[in-house]
Nucleic acid binder design. Structure first.
Lengths: 126, 126
DNA sequence: TCTCTGTTTCGAGAAACATCGAATTCGACA
DNA sequence: TGTCGAATTCGATGTTTCTCGAAACAGAGA
């Protein structure tokens, strides 16, 4: 029952199987929207979008905070705040190894979001 | 030179050809992030995400404000405000026909966003 | 244990946002 | 022309967000 509209959780978003059909294929129910909107909101800041990209495109699939911070003209706390936002949106995972903290993208939810935005070319059915 | 990092405009996002490779494939430059983040931000509100879905999935690809407004427990001005946000983000187009205003999704930018979030399964190269 | 470096949390100020009711604009139709 | 309905703009209010410096926390190494 993981696809029923009323009981969707963040866990479902991390699954590999798509939780939701494309936005243009059927209307997104209110509770699904409430679950997915925070992820889009997290990507809705230029700094976080770049952070997300730097993490996802990093060699090995992970990036150290120590590499991320100096790439912006922003204070350490500010970058940390943005990373927390990405974490709470379920877009990244953090892991401490020794002195450094490494961030890694969660491909599952990324795919969910990409699928949701898919516009099949055959949409003009009229 | 529409793909050069320094001169990207909203127009490029409406094109059918992708302006940007997946976020996980190469790092998103600052000006591209500044251009795309508002689109994600616009989708980062549950009401707007539902509006977007209602518009994109509507029969004929367009939806009347008169059909959108009563679907929410929000005032007319508030829905209008959200629609304006979607419009300014380049996600939808509005057209007045007679008494009613119809909204229509812009598939170009939707595809850009979907492409950006794509995670090819073959990313674990290590 | 003490210190140094990397990272996060806390507290605060400025800016942006969601929401509403009132007022306005735009077409349709008497 | 006058009026009605649909949609937007305007002005106000409470909430959230971005940003910073200061402080706290966590390991590494002497």
């Amino acid at each position: 029952m993981s696809k029923s509209a009323g009981s969707l959780t963040l866990t479902d978003l991390n699954a590999e199987t798509p939780c939701c059909p494309p936005l243009a294929q059927q209307r997104v129910p209110a509770d699904t929207a409430a679950l997915l909107a925070p992820a889009f909101k997290a990507l809705g800041d230029p700094v976080r979008l770049q952070l997300m990209s730097m993490i996802a495109s990093a060699p090995g699939g992970e990036a150290c905070v120590c590499d991320l911070t100096p790439a912006f003209e922003l204070s350490g706390p500010t970058i940390s705040h943005h990373l927390k936002t990405l974490r709470e949106a379920g877009l990244v995972d953090a892991e401490r190894r020794g002195s450094w903290v490494y961030y890694r993208a969660r491909p599952g939810i990324m795919r969910q979001l990409a699928t949701l935005l898919t516009m099949e070319a055959a949409s003009t059915q009229a």
